[in-house]
Amino acid sequence: MIKKKNYVLNQSLFITATNTNVGKTYASSVLLKKLSQEGFKVGYFKPIETGVVELPVDGSAMLELTKKLNPDFNVHIDFIVPYQFKLPAAPYVAKKDTIIDIEFLVKRKNELEELCDILIIEGAGGLMVPIMKDFFVIDLIKEFESKTILISPSKLGSINDTLLSQEALKNRNIDFEWYINLFEDKDSFDEVTLPFYKDYFDEINFLNDIL
Rank of each mutant, 00 (worst) to 15 (best):
L150T: 05
S152P: 07
F135Q: 13
L140D: 10
G126S: 14
M128S: 02
D187W: 04
S165W: 06
T193D: 08
P153H: 05
S188C: 08
L140V: 10
M132K: 15
D134N: 15
N160H: 13
L182H: 12
L150F: 09
D199Q: 06
K170H: 12
G123P: 12
D202R: 02
E122K: 03
K155N: 14
E203D: 11
L194I: 02
C116F: 05
S154P: 05
L156Q: 12
K147M: 01
D139F: 10
Y200R: 04
W178R: 00
N173C: 13
K155V: 11
G157Q: 15
K155W: 11
K142C: 14
D187R: 14
K198Q: 09
F201R: 04
I131R: 08
S146H: 02
D187V: 09
P153K: 10
L164H: 12
G123F: 09
Y200D: 01
L182G: 08
N160F: 09
D187T: 11
I159D: 10
D161W: 06
C116K: 04
F136R: 07
N171M: 12
F144N: 11
K147D: 05
W178S: 00
E145T: 08
F189A: 07
S158Q: 13
E177K: 03
I118Q: 00
T162M: 06
F136V: 09
F144G: 06
F176R: 01
G125L: 08
Y197A: 03
E203A: 06
E177M: 04
P153V: 05
I204K: 09
N173G: 11
L127F: 07
F189D: 08
I120Q: 00
G123N: 11
I180C: 06
N160W: 08
W178M: 01
F183K: 06
D117N: 14
G125K: 05
